[in-house]
Amino acid sequence: MKLQYLKNVTTLKLDASLCIGCGMCVEVCAREVFTIDNKKAKISIKDNCIECGACNKNCPTGAISVDSGVGCAYAVYNGLLTGSKPSCGCSDSGCC
């Protein structure tokens, strides 16, 4: 069963003019968001994106931007309560 989260929420953006078609984004994405089309990366299943940030961090030309973070309600509540960035309370454990 294909599990997909909310539609049209991801902050993922691709600047095709910067793309050199190296395929790194395809390589690191665990959600099959990207494909290579005519030697350029293309966002083909946008709603699959979980904003993990792998593509953005590994793109050699900075063509991809995304506000990455963990999709974890506990972390977001934690951030709201402590007034800091969302972070799991599991900084010293094996959670998530």
Binding site: L6, V9, T10, C96
Partner: peptide
Amino acid sequence: ALNFTGSTTFTSLSGVKKEI
């Protein structure tokens, strides 16, 4: 259920923020 988002492999921060 909402707190289970952190244990899954297909949720995103923007989505969770919207839900919350």
